[in-house]
Design a protein around this nucleic acid. Structure first.
Lengths: 143, 143
DNA sequence: CGGTATCCCTGAAGATACTG
DNA sequence: CAGTATCTTCAGGGATACCG
């Protein structure tokens, strides 16, 4: 490994969330998990490691620490907007896994909370709001 | 670490592409890279590690090995459809990085190859083709 | 060219005990 | 409860030499 300041956005993103534990922590957080001990017991992660990850995630603006309103001794890790917007990437990975491994019995389904219908595909939009299929998206470099 | 057969689709996906090198290899492959030595020299990855990764990726159906048509001695790693469809997830991560770190000078831009317009947002669609914004997508569990 | 076979070594993860 | 502080282990990565 050992990459310094990479100009690749993907590498950059991976610097922040490319770690396996970070992903799993995020996943649990998306499901409403907010407390240190809950992460420990659910993920089976060592306390010191979790501590490191959370610290980094706070530093990267993925979590904000908030004292619980109900119990003063309890601290809550709340997802920031930045973190929440990463869910699209996780959803994309989930859809991919479901599509290519239909044999596996995954739990849960992606739904639109407004209409309650199942999510089937991912799309993109141009700056002028035109629909674009994923396979038509490319990275282009200016000379 | 140490997760066996996890029922979480995200964990499952990470088992296949959750490794840093795998991500970078994929990225390069999306840009047309196909040969062993090219990955070695561009990524700076150790040969044995690259070998391991490629082997796993072939086993997971991300690459197919094809003898080069131009040079018989050369082997090509070609992305499968499965791998290509993962690009959506990478694009999502790229968009996220660009949005939240506009200060960074990332190279290249996402464009629609049909109209050549810039890609701005990611959307989803329900099974009956209705548009859904990312923030309205949730995972729901059946009792 | 496209790997395989070794050896080494570091850094990340785990376990555990302790603290505010 | 939510961490911190240590200690230890081990596997993953790097370097290098070699092979078909």
């Amino acid at each position: 490994m050992s990459k310094k300041k990479s100009i690749c956005p993907l590498a950059f993103a991976l610097d922040q969330v490319g770690d396996r534990w970070t992903f799993m922590i995020l996943r649990n957080a998306f499901f409403g998990m907010r407390r240190f001990s809950d992460f420990v017991s659910d993920l089976g992660i060592a306390r010191n490691i979790l501590s490191q990850r959370l610290e980094a995630m706070v530093a990267n603006g993925l979590f904000t620490i908030v004292p619980s309103e109900t119990d003063a001794r309890v601290t809550e890790y709340r997802l920031t907007k930045k973190a929440k917007e990463l869910s699209s990437a996780l959803v994309a990975m989930r859809m991919w896994a479901e599509k290519w491994h239909p044999d596996i019995d995954f739990k849960g389904e992606l739904i639109d909370i407004a209409t309650h219908k199942k999510i089937k595909q991912l799309r993109f939009r141009t700056t002028d709001n035109q629909d674009v299929a994923p396979e038509n998206v490319r990275v282009e470099y200016a000379p």
